[in-house]
């Protein structure tokens, strides 16, 4: 019945596709989602979250499935930018000429899609932790970059897969002094989100520190065998240059 990757010990629904009979009820952390058949090809959709509520009627045919998967954190509270500002709770110092690899928490939103004839239409998007749907400014008010913002920690095995993915960051310090890194700003539209039984992942980043205030960040394609999430944003750029510092 359930065509998704399931965890029998979890009370929460898992990412994947769900066929719809008369009704469907899915539970996520702080979020309840239900779908009820009203007539032969009409369904009512209702989602209650900590921060918001969504109700709508779906008139999209009778042979539909509900597809739920993690998506890039660029849609809530509204899509305004593709830049993501990750504020790292514990700064990392990388020695001069050294390389380092860290794994960070990466906020994800959950996209709800209607699947019909192998096509996916987004009907809703929510976050299990509303505090991850915030904005920040990188740089000055006149020339700065408007970004989505999240305060994150180094990822470990106890990561909440409904709120965070794991992201590797490869850091190369090309300067002659140690570099203290407390934030990473990059264009998230370069990345894809993947999920499997092992968790949620996004493609890793390469961060090359070029001077005291400058670092170039680009995305490295992912090689793991996982399901790929539906992407809502087109790629906007190949790399991002942090010119306002990384400390």
């Amino acid at each position: 019945m359930l065509e998704s990757i399931s965890d029998p010990f979890s009370k929460y629904a898992t990412f994947g596709s769900y066929p719809i009979d008369d009704k469907l009820h899915l539970q996520f952390p702080k979020t309840n989602l239900s779908l009820k058949k009203e007539s032969s090809d009409r369904y009512s959709y209702h989602r209650i979250s900590a921060a918001s509520e969504q109700k709508q009627v779906l008139d999209m045919g009778s042979k539909i499935k509900l597809h739920v998967c993690p998506v890039l954190p660029l849609n809530l509270p509204e899509h305004k930018t593709s830049l993501l500002y990750l504020d790292i709770s514990t700064p990392l110092s990388v020695g001069k000429g050294m390389t380092s690899k860290i794994t960070l928490q990466y906020p994800v939103e959950i996209g709800v899609f209607v699947e019909c004839n192998s096509e996916y239409d987004l009907i809703d998007c929510f976050s299990c932790d509303p505090l991850l749907s915030r904005f920040a400014l990188y740089g000055s008010p006149t020339d700065g970059y408007f970004c989505k913002y999240a305060f994150v920690e180094f990822a470990d095995d106890n990561i909440d897969n409904y709120c965070f993915a794991k992201m590797d960051v490869h850091i190369i310090n090309n300067t002659n002094t140690p570099a203290k890194i407390s934030k990473v700003i990059f264009d998230a539209s370069q990345q894809d989100v993947f999920y499997s039984e092992d968790g949620v992942f996004v493609e890793s980043l390469n961060m090359v520190i070029e001077s005291k205030n400058k670092a170039t960040i680009n995305c490295e394609s992912f090689t793991k065998d996982c399901s790929k999430s539906i992407k809502l944003q087109a790629k906007e750029s190949e790399f991002f240059v942090m010119t306002e510092g990384y400390d």
Binding site: Y85, L131, S133, F135, L137, Y149
Partner: peptide
Amino acid sequence: IKHNLEYVLQKP
């Protein structure tokens, strides 16, 4: 502010 005003910037 942090919990209720989602459009307020966290940085600055």
